[in-house]
Write a protein that binds this DNA or RNA. Structure first.
Lengths: 169, 169
DNA sequence: CATTTTATGTCAGCCTTGTTGACATTCCAA
DNA sequence: TTGGAATGTCAACAAGGCTGACATAAAATG
């Protein structure tokens, strides 16, 4: 996998990575992820929600009319766990669940006005942090950032990640 | 902050970032973090531990003889939460807690042989994933990756991250 | 020396979010 | 018609966050 004689991305080939360097990267990942979630967490807290709600709102917004099963695959949790979160969002009027047209067993999920509003607030806070980081690091760094992250995903996940579609409202 | 007329890292200045690009980055972060934690999680599971134990082991290993208070600051949790984890690690003989020499109120924390062994297994799994990602992406990408992550941290955290010291056994 | 502050530990209780297992309903498909 | 897939629901449990209260020892400070 990483043994090929040439590197596709134009870097020098032989990479000597000390444990020290790798540890730095590991800790950077840990601390950065904390920053990454800090702003949305504050907003969620005001509404009495947690990260699980954020994730659900995010992916319902991204893939308009997604089914519960699709959501389960992306989020990687059990249906019982997702269901609890989903139920509160539906009860609170942030998410609408409509019976599927072609397959009436399925539930298609949509954000309501207020659901979309919260999602916007959350993602705007997160985008702002990401934007600032991107600006500070520069475009070349951003490209590298994305390359490393993508290489760090599990294979099946990378497939899902790469098959992202624009939402069609 | 991001308004300076020049970019320090040699990139072009004007960065036009669409919400689409930022969303891609956000999701990359989400999915990559899952991959990042997947391998240690499996090992931890076999031992009946969770991520909280991993974090404690990691930072006790990194800063040899650290105090409980130091650990609290780095981990960003309450002492009650940390204590629960620490207690099980001490009971299980993975961590040793010694009364401080200069300040007898403090407890200095050390990994035992078996604690160090588990830490090694966990970090080696994580390093291996990181190493593979680094190799796949190349050295230039790695530099960018680290730059963006560092810019994404909270300010106080970045200070902690940058003041990493080699452990002195 | 008396008092206050600091570092740590511990108990109790609560919340979110993950888990498993069991079971019901609905409905497509063979 | 029957099997299986998709979904929902109930119950129980665990990890690991949180708060609040309280105890102890030791350091720091008046």
């Amino acid at each position: 996998m990483a043994d090929g004689p040439t590197n596709s991305s134009g870097g020098e080939n032989l990479l000597f990575l000390t444990d020290e360097q790798l540890r730095k990267g590991i800790e950077a990942m840990f601390f950065a992820y904390r920053g990454f979630t800090a702003d949305p967490d504050r907003i969620l807290d005001e509404h009495g929600y947690g990260r699980a709600h954020h994730r659900a709102l995010h992916f319902i917004n991204r893939t308009y009319g997604t089914t519960v099963n699709n959501l389960l695959l992306v989020l990687g949790v059990t249906k019982q766990s997702l269901n609890r979160v989903l139920r509160t969002l539906i009860e609170d009027g942030l998410v609408e669940s409509r019976i599927g047209k072609t397959d009436r067993r399925e539930r298609n999920l949509y954000l309501t006005e207020s659901g979309a509003a919260l999602e916007r607030a959350l993602s705007e806070a997160q985008r702002e942090r990401m934007r600032a980081a991107y600006r500070a690091a520069g475009p070349q760094a951003v490209a590298g950032f994305r390359q490393v992250l993508e290489a760090m995903m599990d294979d099946e996940i990378r497939r899902q990640y790469n098959s992202l579609r624009e939402r069609r409202p």
